[in-house]
């Protein structure tokens, strides 16, 4: 008598598009062949440099893929060509990204010296030698404006999300729609609006005005992210709270919001990352000042304007300073992102 072994293990559903070892080998051969072709094209024609080589590779890869598979029929050949085209196109997209990061790092690190992060430009003209002056005033200004902007925009953004998800009021759809529309307001228009109101009424550029312009740009990001996070809160928690006789406000403030506190921090951080590099609205509202300043009613420096104004001078040292400022700004954005990512992965694990 034969016995049948019945497997009790349910097989994992397999993603049909996952790669096998054969695929990797084939791709390796494909890329090598195309790379050689790109190099040949580079030496034979006027194309030059890495980009020229890449153009050669990009054209060669679909052709090589087609030639290598056409004997198996049209369907397979079109699949291979599509894979080649998609991969090549995506790799092309990353070239400018890498170039931006590398250029900012290379050129920006030249502007660094021991006091770069602690000095300001009070007694240093932009064209002065690199060893003098620094970006401290711009860092302080950016921090102050972003802090004030967050103090206003983060609560408002979270409350807008609470309205959509918790209260589900009559205007919920409208509010979501308006927040999305607001995220499309060009930053210069936000600056122009604050100029037409705050700057004109209070008679001058100020850190206040800059911060208010940033509020307009920050609010949609915070509201949108908070909304996504609020939706994660399980309905059971709310029901349980209501069942214990809690009011809606108590449920929201004592149960729902504390549950996703770290998610709300992520929303705030993403909002800050969105506005920390805004240049155009600050030209119209906060203007620029060369010394460290903490006065809210005076013009104030900021990293983006420091970059922008140094760049406009056309001098070599000034341009190096602009790159230095870019490196600091990019570093700030990078750190903010790392924070947001760490918090949100921790939240996801919960």
């Amino acid at each position: 008598m034969t016995t049948f072994e019945v497997s009790t293990v349910v097989p994992e559903p397999r993603r049909p598009w996952d790669h096998s070892r054969g695929t990797l080998l084939r791709v390796g051969v494909l890329v090598t062949l195309s790379g050689i072709f790109g190099w040949l094209l580079n030496t034979l024609t006027g194309l030059s440099g890495f980009l020229g080589w890449y153009v050669g590779l990009a054209f060669a890869m679909p052709v090589v893929a087609f030639v290598g598979s056409v004997r198996h029929g049209w369907n397979l050949a079109s699949d291979r060509v599509a894979s080649a085209v998609i991969t090549v196109a995506f790799a092309a997209v990353t070239i400018p990204w890498v170039s931006i990061f590398v250029t900012v790092y290379q050129k920006g690190s030249k502007a660094f010296h021991s006091k770069y992060l602690t000095d300001d430009m009070r007694i240093t003209p932009s064209s002065d030698v690199i060893q003098n002056g620094g970006v401290a005033h711009a860092i302080i200004g950016t921090l102050m404006m972003v802090l004030i902007a967050s103090l206003i925009a983060v609560p408002l953004g979270i409350l807008a999300a609470v309205y959509i998800v918790e209260i589900k009021g009559r205007f919920a759809k409208l509010v979501r729609f308006l927040t999305q529309a607001m995220s499309g307001v060009p930053s210069i228009v936000a600056g122009l609006f604050i100029y037409a109101t705050v700057v004109v009424f209070f008679g001058g550029f100020s850190a206040w005005a800059g911060a208010l312009a940033l509020v307009i740009l920050m609010l949609p990001t915070v509201a949108r992210t908070s909304e996504e996070i609020l939706k994660i809160v399980p309905e059971d928690l709310r029901t349980a709270s209501y069942a214990l006789g809690a009011t809606q406000s108590r449920t929201t403030f004592r149960v729902v919001l504390p549950t996703i506190a770290s998610g709300l921090v992520t929303a705030a951080v993403l909002g800050i990352a969105r506005v920390v590099g805004e240049t155009a609205p600050l030209i119209l509202t906060a203007s620029y000042f060369v010394a460290k300043s903490t006065s809210l009613n005076e013009p104030i420096a900021s990293l983006p304007i420091y970059i922008f104004s140094s760049l406009g001078l056309g001098d070599e040292n000034a341009t190096t300073r602009a790159w230095g400022g870019s490196l600091v700004l990019l570093g700030v954005v990078f750190i903010l992102f790392a924070i947001a990512r760490t918090i949100s992965t921790r939240l996801a694990r919960k």
């Binding site: 409350l159 309205y163 209260i167 509010v175 607001m182 609006f193 037409a196 809606q248």
Partner: peptide, 24 residues
Amino acid sequence: VFRGFVTSCALFSLVVLILIAAFL
């Protein structure tokens, strides 16, 4: 009170959009 407060905060974006158009 809570619902009224949150609703008025949520309509802030509407107010801003209208104010932008009006002032410009």
